[in-house]
Simulated scan of single mutants.
Amino acid sequence: MTLLTLPDDLRGAFKEPMGPVYTDAERLLADAGDPIVAVGDVVTYHLRVAGRDPDVAVIDGKTKREAVGEEIAAVLDGENRRIEVDNEPATLSTAMLGALVEALASDDPVVIHVTGEEDLATVPALVAAPEGASVVYGQPDEGMVLVDVTAESRREARDLLGRLDGDTAAALSALDGDG
């Protein structure tokens, strides 16, 4: 079930990086907190190649709306526990939000495999992840964006969620573990 939808007039708010952009995964990892939530196939690939399996990886088998190459797919095909969710493009589903909360509560790395699109998962990940964590996502043609989970970044993420169309209260309740 879709809880939130990105309105067309808000698409621009998601174009600007929410944190510093890195092109070197090892440098990013040196600055990252714990746990690490990776949103995107290429980001997850680069973190794994650099020797760090994200605690939570949200992937959909695509990059820039095209299937990832064999090399990336092979690295992403690991032994981690998988949660399968449906999440339509430009939306956040109940299943996606629940999977984020469930994966963050796990002691072992979890891959959330999305049928649809995972692009908006960064925002609820910032709300659900504990302070001190890091959320990493891809900035097309630029690199990887590192967002530290702080009271400020969490407040900004909650504000962005509130600007999406749909049931913000239900979404925040699900992310706070109340739903």
Rank of each mutant, 00 (worst) to 15 (best):
M18Y: 12
A125E: 03
G33R: 02
A121N: 00
G40W: 04
A95D: 08
D9S: 10
A129C: 05
G33K: 05
V39G: 12
R48L: 08
A25M: 05
E79F: 05
E79V: 09
E88G: 05
R52T: 13
V85W: 02
Y22I: 08
D24A: 13
D34T: 08
P130A: 12
F14H: 15
R81L: 08
G40N: 10
P124E: 12
G51E: 11
Y45W: 06
D31S: 08
I36Q: 00
A50M: 05
R81I: 06
L29Q: 11
D53E: 14
V37F: 02
V101F: 02
V37P: 02
H46P: 01
L104R: 00
M18R: 13
L126S: 01
M18S: 12
R52W: 04
I72K: 13
L120T: 00
A32S: 09
P54H: 00
A73P: 10
L28T: 09
G33C: 02
L76N: 09
L29D: 11
D9M: 03
L28F: 04
D8Y: 08
L28G: 01
G69L: 14
T63K: 05
D9A: 14
K15Q: 15
A67T: 07
L6T: 02
L92I: 09
P130L: 12
I72P: 00
V37S: 04
G51S: 07
P17C: 14
A128R: 00
L10Q: 15
T94G: 02
D31L: 03
R65I: 00
A25Q: 10
D53V: 13
A50P: 04
A50H: 09
S93T: 10
L10T: 13
D86L: 13
D34R: 11
P17N: 15
R82V: 10
F14Q: 11
L10D: 04
P109T: 14
G33D: 01
